[in-house]
Amino acid sequence: MHSIPGRRVILSLFLIFLLLPIYWLVNMSFKTNTEIVSTMTLWPTHPTIANYMRIFTDESWYSGYINSLKYVIINTIISISFALPAAYAFSRYRFLGDKHLFFWLLSNRMAPPAVYALPFFNLYSAINLFDTPWAVALAHCLFNVPLAVWILEGFVSSVPREIDETAFLDGYSFPKFFIKILVPLIASGIGVAAFFCFMFSWVELLLARTLTSVDAKPISAVMTRTVSAAGMDWGLLAAAGVLTIIPGALVIWFVRNYIARGFALGRV
């Protein structure tokens, strides 16, 4: 009774629709440019890894990945460590303005990055962080900290309050309780929140591109600029794209049951 007639056909068609464009990108990444432009084949006739080799050996390419990873990791660490105590507070206590604060956090998750691009540019130039991973990491806190708070709040709420009370009776101080008891209990929740902070920072382009110029240029910016200069090197572009999909594809298996929860700000 769960499902509908013809469901296998519908689902298969939809999954093919999802996979086909990705397959095409992978397919092109193993072709040479001559082959891409001259023939239309469903798979590479002369598979080559030259495109990938070029990315791994050319510093202007692989440094883009390193720069992206730098700000993504800094951002994830900041977001989680700031959000954890707040999530606990929202889950356990009522305090002045708690509901308004919760809504304010949500509204920041919804704020268009385009609005913030210019003021962030001025702000981080003024404090000499422009073109460093820190600028992008702090800018992405705008939407990742609220996200982490919302997700973690759900996980903290699933821990019974009796555990807090017993720990305090046993003489645990608050910081000790937090690190020794609460954090291990919601470890999977922290993992999920970290994954989503990682992903949302990884997929964002506009702020990352605006706040960097040379030294901290993220891979997304490298992709747009190098391509126009090289006169559309399709194979290389495809290979660079495939490499950006890999971090998500690697972790996705472990968080598959939490994806809806993460995207719905922990509300499902």
Binding site: L15, P21, I22, W24, V203, S220, W234, T244, I252, F263
Partner: peptide, 30 residues
Amino acid sequence: CLVILALPLLIPWNVVGTIWQIFGRPDIGL
């Protein structure tokens, strides 16, 4: 199914653009 469904959500937005830019081109896109 969950993994395949989630895949497009985890692709950087500019790469989503790139994928469709390539996929839709009359000369080189399927």
